[in-house]
Amino acid sequence: MNSPILNLVAERIVVAVVTLLFVAFTIFFATEMLPGDVAEILLGQAATPEAVAGLRAAMNLDQPAFLRFIYWIGNLFTGDLGVSYVNKMPISDLIGGRLVNSLKLASVTAAISVPIALTLGITAAILRGTFYDRIVSIFTIAVISVPEFMVATLSVIVFAVYLGWLPALSMANEVTSIGGLLKVFAMPVITLSFVISAQMIRMTRAAVLETLSTAYVEMALLKGASRRRMVLRHALPNALGPIVNAVALSLSYLLGGVIIVETIFNYPGIAKLMLDAVSTRDLPLIQSCAMIFCLGYLLLITIADLVAIVSNPRLQ
């Protein structure tokens, strides 16, 4: 019973390393295709050929990019993420605090949105076709149809500017109490929950309905089992695979995709860091961020796949 799962985990670890390498190479070539290098971008309008050449030499960027990349990969295996081209700071220092911030925001958002989304999705499926179901459906779509930056800006205008209840910025480093924490996180978490919940709600509802309509559940319903009981006892376990997949996909958004929330609430997270890195062509930093996003994503989907297998004995 346990061995397929262990096999899967072992296989996934190997696969993860290969995937990471694959991603690293792809990103390297993609970044190389982008016009301009660090020296040119840093000099901006002042990028005359000799200035660029001088700066390149000073930054030790005059050896071939591919060679530098290979060194970086080599060092990665010793746990060294390298040094930023742009400001010479160790990448682990640049990422460290901001990754923690991102994880904090992601976990608070997940802790709030996942239970709510699953409850709404499952109850909507149980009460399919009722007024409640309709309301949930329309509400979820309406909520994601409004662009994220608009939700965020609107909530700042209402809660910070007019009502003055919450701070307009989320300065994570100034939090001293639980109350303060709630205040600082309130708006970013609400905005993000709006974005990620819709997918989970709709997928949960659809997956549960799908299993409900498989014939054996219908048989049971015909035999007089209650709908709610059927959902919880039979449909839900069978629908768990797709549901967990939807949850994993939604949560994977919370690491790299929260750029708008980080920008509007001035929250120093890792998504903005990666954007900075791309716009300054800071390859080691781009790579390190990409590795983190990739790892996070692989972790989430591996968990999703494991849950799917465990919940559907036939998959073993």
């Binding site: 995937t19 694959f22 991603v23 990103i27 993609a30 954007l275 990409a290 996003f293 994503y297």
Partner: peptide, 13 residues
Amino acid sequence: RMLDALTSIPSKI
């Protein structure tokens, strides 16, 4: 795995 890797590449890049 290929598609997983594709997902990890940031859409901005």
